[in-house]
Design a protein around this nucleic acid. Sequence first.
DNA 1: GAAAAAATCACCTGAAAGGGGGATTGACCA
DNA 2: TGGTCAATCCCCCTTTCAGGTGATTTTTTC
Lengths: 207, 207
Amino acid sequence: MDKIKILVTDDHPMVLEGMQTMLSQIGFVIITGLARNAYEAMELIKANPPHIVITDISMPEISGIEFAAKVRNEYPGVKIIAMSTFNERSYISQMVQNGASGYILKSASKEEIEEAILTVYEGKLYMSVELELNKKEQQEINKIPILTSREKEVLALIAEGFTNPQIAAKLFVSPYTVDSHRKNLLTKFEVNNTAGLIKLAARYGLV
Amino acid sequence: MDKIKILVTDDHPMVLEGMQTMLSQIGFVIITGLARNAYEAMELIKANPPHIVITDISMPEISGIEFAAKVRNEYPGVKIIAMSTFNERSYISQMVQNGASGYILKSASKEEIEEAILTVYEGKLYMSVELELNKKEQQEINKIPILTSREKEVLALIAEGFTNPQIAAKLFVSPYTVDSHRKNLLTKFEVNNTAGLIKLAARYGLV
DNA sequence: GAAAAAATCACCTGAAAGGGGGATTGACCA
DNA sequence: TGGTCAATCCCCCTTTCAGGTGATTTTTTC
């Protein structure tokens, strides 16, 4: 098997060092780059596309969430593993929403990182065992609907309390269009009214 | 000034030890009890009502949130300071909702605990400076509406996606009554539809 | 025991949302 | 170049919601 190419992005030098050390101890992995921010990372990905990008979630300028969206958009083949110090479920949801395939804590052991890389490399979803997520919650994350960008816009405006006509005016489209998006949202979330929709969206960190 | 009587509740013996040491260094404070859970705490409160209860949020069996509600209900004069390791805004909201007057982190310094006790003793609201809450967020917490128990029930059911008639059936009351509660919720949250209501309720950790 | 708060019920109105159905256009993609 | 998807638009009908106004009863509080 060829070595799995990994790029790591984190704004803390200490974490980069630590990851480098740990990854270098994993035989089937080769580090193609270490970046301190999303810009550097994009350059390095362009120069030498890795299989997997491991990125911190909270970074200045461009957050890991935006970065993930950018990577998925421009390099759909590149898998993303999100990394954070905290156990924030809403972040997990957002990362998954934006294309992440894995989620680990910075306190993860070498073994766990190894497992995460292998799992994600095989195209599966990896969630840190230390995230106190039970089976049920994992299933829940797997069923977070994928929304189109327009749907996200409409969802955000619904959550703000705007009505269909108001949203239509803001987006310069027909109220019928907004209504269609709204109905699609209800279908995707498998709920039958706005209350259920917003509750789920809030739980998943989408609003 | 008489000494301020304090009772501490936490399921971690280490924390109890630490609090005891710290509190004993504060001149105007006297510890009336150390409890490892809500049951013990209720007994101790009954035997010798303190001015302030400092309680951990996450405890087995009865959480700090339920415990706070119980204390406020049975001993309205007793002030509550919530304590946790995490900076979870939704917990803060829930504690405030259930009667807490203060919120500190377990990493708080002696000085901070001292300040928290004094502030709460004077009937004011104290929020740990280490909680990275800006002024705006503090104001936001101050304006979380206080809901009646019936309103909380109705809110929860609305969030579940039930309609007024369905909720009425569940609660064995008239749909008109549910409608009244719903309207009061909209008024209290200062929103004009369900979407805004659920979004705020979710942000405040009420659903 | 009076006052305040919470919970209950009622009606009217118009606006909005929910549940169906369908149609068109353009983009991307295999 | 046919297929899928996103985004747009349209109409039907029924239910629910939101805003207003007012009332009674029970519980809590002082």
